[in-house]
């Protein structure tokens, strides 16, 4: 099987090394160009199964402000970020809301909950 290389920037520290991940048949066989082991781990993850922190705001009814900031309890697969955003654009939460309150459990069966990142009183 043919070798493939993907270049990416390591974002773990300000050095911003250009990593070259060499893989063959879906397996990483080498990580070049990184300055340290943390960068190697990042580059592997980024190529095999990239994840992202997820956060957005959702509409609130009866709250002091119109929007409530929320996040997922764990990072989510990168390619599902837009799906989650669309799903959350459909809901409206009722005030008051507590900090850390679960807004949606196990969203899109991804095994993560969506929680409020602030408290929001009623008007």
């Amino acid at each position: 099987m043919r070798e493939k290389t993907r270049e990416l920037t390591c974002v773990v520290c300000p050095m911003s090394c250009r990593a070259r991940v060499v893989f063959e048949g879906g397996e990483v066989i080498a990580v070049k160009g990184v300055g340290c082991p943390r960068g190697e781990a990042y580059a592997r993850g980024e190529v095999m199964a990239p994840v992202r922190d997820f956060f957005t705001t959702v509409r609130v009814r009866g709250g002091k402000f119109s929007m409530l900031p929320v996040r997922t309890t764990m990072p989510v697969p990168k390619e599902r970020v837009m799906d989650i955003a669309v799903e959350l654009s459909k809901i409206t939460v009722e005030a008051p809301v507590k900090l850390g309150q679960v807004i949606m459990r196990d969203i899109l069966n991804l095994n993560v909950d969506v929680i409020a990142t602030r408290a929001l009183d009623v008007v």
Binding site: D53, F55, P69, R71, L99, T117, R118, A119
Partner: peptide
């Protein structure tokens, strides 16, 4: 910890 802005300031 990796927090959002509102969590940090809360």
């Amino acid at each position: 910890e990796n927090l959002t802005g509102p969590e940090y300031v809360s």
